[in-house]
Design a protein around this nucleic acid. Sequence first.
DNA 1: ACCTGAACACCGTTCAAGT
DNA 2: ACCTGAACACCGTTCAAGT
Lengths: 242, 242
Amino acid sequence: MSTVKQPPVEAGTEHRALRADARRNRARILDAAALAFAEGGIDVGVAEIARRAGVGTGTLFRHFATKHDLLLAVMLDRSTEMREMLRAAQEEPDPWTALVRVLSESALMQARDRCFKALKTSELMDEPAMREISEELFAGFGTIVDRAKAAGVLREDVVPEDLPQLTDAIGNVAAQWSTVRPDLWQRYLVIILDGLRPGGSPLGAVAPTMEDLYAGFGCAAVGAAASASCVDLIDRSASTAS
Amino acid sequence: MSTVKQPPVEAGTEHRALRADARRNRARILDAAALAFAEGGIDVGVAEIARRAGVGTGTLFRHFATKHDLLLAVMLDRSTEMREMLRAAQEEPDPWTALVRVLSESALMQARDRCFKALKTSELMDEPAMREISEELFAGFGTIVDRAKAAGVLREDVVPEDLPQLTDAIGNVAAQWSTVRPDLWQRYLVIILDGLRPGGSPLGAVAPTMEDLYAGFGCAAVGAAASASCVDLIDRSASTAS
DNA sequence: ACCTGAACACCGTTCAAGT
DNA sequence: ACCTGAACACCGTTCAAGT
């Protein structure tokens, strides 16, 4: 006869002596969810995840108060993998190779796991835990970009905050064609890499800041004031051609 | 006491003398849906669309047998706009400017309308009507690419079938930052344009075909055999740098 | 011939009842 | 302290009853 609802285990708060069966159930739910999200996308029913984990749906919601929380836990794991990938890339002696590794390996990660797409769609980036890891990832991007610039192999007007957009662009192609043409993304990686060499045309829009990135993730409404500068861009780009 | 279900008006079959009120309702539903999808994404409830259109949900489903059909009808309209945009771009005297226009204007379209994203996510590309229009769009892409190659302003190893991926990549950025940084996509457009100039590094993956593109849209399962060629790419790209 | 809204199936979430 | 599944709310879809 519980009149007050018991709050589930917080995501951040570390498990203070969970009962043995509870710990095992939590782990099985996470595993089942990660697998289900990866191969089925984020629309797989929570009932199926519970079934695959061998628990009741009530148990699932005891550990993760909402489906969103479950997805968050899964994505935090994935982000950890990404962080380790970045750390490895930083030890790469050649600065250009390091940049290529970051771009191509994050494309491969997105090709393998369907729920990376959810990072932009869903409101996952509002979570403080997610931002914390992102901050670390961005720091890693900074090192990669700075080294490449210092070595003179990367155009000077690119900033670390540009990298998420680029990994995204390539990752989307990699994810969409992962079965039919698993290597197709490389074409666009090469095109972008060529465009990142020093001595390119002026970029035409001021560099994004950290605040821009976070604001962009939370965006819900639609703007309609972007049409004006299009003509400018065409003129500028045309004058550089041929 | 209708025992047999009456099929709703087919999407392709042109309205053979709809009753006046029915025609008006159909138009109002389409308008309401287009607006709702554009600003709210494809997850807006069909009940809200019906309410905005001033009809009952039953009427909505009489005209469009399923929500998917309604979305299809809306997207066919949007594709028509895109076709007209392409036609206008083809009349551009300078081949390079024509290419820039196609890329930037499709980015702007995606920034304005949230449901362009649904084109890849949803199974909309399975529809014959959608393919028909796509075929026409691809033909337009072909003209743009051929002219630019002939003028010597575009690298030779790019094919028309590459354009959808590139417009997608830029369009995604445009859509995501449409409110916060409506011009941000231009940075990546410039980078990609620079990478499209003649004399770039070898692309590293064979060009996509029409069949690849259609297969990619229908893809549901996840492949896991793409990791091998990553190292090759890094080596190849590193040797070209500095 | 077309419109309508109550009714159904499905999915995320809750909670009283169990151990 | 934790697990469970029936029950609830919500949304896409249907259909018997209306005009």
